[in-house]
Design a protein around this nucleic acid. Structure first.
Lengths: 302, 302
DNA sequence: ATATATTGTTTCTATATAAGAAACAATAGA
DNA sequence: TCTATTGTTTCTTATATAGAAACAATATAT
């Protein structure tokens, strides 16, 4: 028998001075009203109300209890309301994790807009190349560019990232410019290795998939390190346009094999649970999704 | 599902950082621990804990709720404890009702002893010849000398009251002294009428019951009024020895028909309910019972 | 690398409990 | 005296509860 309901019934009975009235107000049978008060009396080992069939009277302990019961019920109602509101209005600290390059290039920019819209939200950003473990790290939301390993988290694709093969003019002068994917065999291709080493680059040309095995002497799990290495002429890199767009425009890097389109990488928002998603998380995911609709700005880089 | 239990489970899970540990501490199955937290999450419409099979982490709302939950649980425990103690230790106001004569002659004397023993108890005494209605009048305990009408209250016999037929020397000089019950026919017998008029006096002599019809011009529901009337020589009265003992010793009244013993009147303690009787009521009933054991002092009046 | 143990959740089933209708005893008021 | 209403009890049924077992996931030990 739910103690809180019993307390509510007792409170109503004491307030109305009648079991029947209380039962009607609470839309329960008077039988239940009687049982709930008895339940409390059993729990407390105390007689709360002296009653005959026609008259009611709080006992000494009964009125002492009544004074406290209303406070407790009010406290319960109040916290439940505040907790529910906390979830339905965006507020509180939003803990976000992302890869350093995505964070540096795009997340901070998006956040500054979002936070202006929802001033009650603050953020804590952790940038790391680790695969995010939301529960372990106490993270509300992670963004991940690339294919995901299976996990118990919910992942929603919010955008895709075009990639481009590129190298510095200096490197190309030294080593020549590859004209077809096959030419890459002869080049030092720097490998992005988020989890396991991927030594193949895939392209699509005229609806055909071309898979090329590549090799090189640099392998790194950090995209920006590869970008800088490429600018410094260390080799050829296949990187998202959102990272190297400006470098190519500025001439620090040259786009290569432009007729051969690398497969786009998905950009995921990863979060804990579909049900009971708090408003701050829900609205930020939605905000990010809308921001990159219908196509992320970084994909039109030329 | 009991919300308070769910709150306790959630609190334990949050404290221990584990469903299994919490379940073991609370001696419930981990299945139930899981369900209780889910119950709260459903009530609040909020995710309280992010969890995988191995790790636990309070959500933002979860920790906000956790902070309040412990306060609420503490408030519930504290009031329940104080209420139970209130009932198990004699304290508070004891509202007593009694007939004026019993109250004046004996109750106040007994109370002064009782209150010295239990200094946390105070009393409020209402003396009235009405039949007590405990619920209506908000009375904890009533004493009643005489046979009771049926009622929904609990009555415990704590003593018995010898009675004696008596009259003032002046009256007897004027009207003669009755030697047998039958002689009473010729006398002005004053009638005690608590509820309905009793116009018969009963005696026991040599294990035989003798019933005598009596009559008189004074009829009253107040014993002390009859006593005073008797002293003033208005007629013959049949009154408890606890009332007229001193008057007889002082010669203001003479005892009559001493070989004919009137049936003793029971003295009842009347209270509301057997179960959950508060300590102040319980101890006072017990105190009064012991006080008049094995025989009330007023019955040895000679 | 594999096995083992432990995690939180889900499923399943026996049991306990909740709820209210109806019967009940008591009683205030017509 | 009758009627209506009170709080309680009894009865029945529909639901909820509890935990064992199965389960999927994953630390830790071997």
């Amino acid at each position: 028998m739910d103690k809180v309901i019993s307390m509510r019934v007792f409170s109503a009975v004491a307030k109305n001075g009648s079991f029947s009235d209380a039962a009607r107000k609470l839309s329960i049978s008077k039988a239940m009203a009687s049982k709930h008060v008895q339940n409390l009396e059993n729990i407390l080992g105390v007689r709360l109300l002296n009653r005959t069939t026609r008259k009611l009277n709080l006992t000494d302990v009964g009125s002492a209890y009544y004074e406290k019961v209303d406070d407790i019920l009010a406290a319960i109602d109040e916290t439940e309301l505040s907790i529910s509101q906390l979830n339905s209005e965006p507020k509180g600290k939003l803990k976000i994790m992302a890869q350093p390059s995505f964070g540096a290039f795009h997340l901070s920019r998006a956040l500054s807009v979002y936070l202006r819209k929802y001033p009650d939200v603050s953020t804590e950003i952790e940038l790391s190349n680790r695969t995010p473990d939301l529960v372990e790290d106490g993270i509300d939301l992670a963004f991940y560019v690339g294919e995901l390993a299976d996990s118990s988290f919910v992942a929603r694709k919010i955008a895709s990232a075009r990639r481009v093969v590129c190298a510095s003019p200096y490197y190309l002068k030294q080593n020549g410019t590859p004209q077809t994917p096959d030419d890459l065999h002869k080049h030092n291709c720097m490998i992005y290795a988020p989890r396991t080493v991927q030594n193949k680059w895939e392209f699509i040309s005229n609806n055909e998939k071309i898979k090329v095995k590549i090799s090189g002497d640099i392998q790194c799990n950090d995209g920006d390190a590869l970008r800088i290495a490429a600018i410094q002429g260390c080799g050829i890199a296949q990187l998202p346009t959102y990272m190297v767009g400006l470098d190519i425009q500025a001439g620090r890097l040259n786009a290569l094999l432009e007729e051969y389109e690398p497969e786009k990488l998905p950009v995921y928002a990863i979060y804990n649970h579909r049900k009971y998603l708090s408003a701050k998380i829900q609205t930020f995911i939605e905000f990010m999704y809308e921001l990159y609709q219908p196509e992320a700005y970084w994909n039109e880089w030329t």
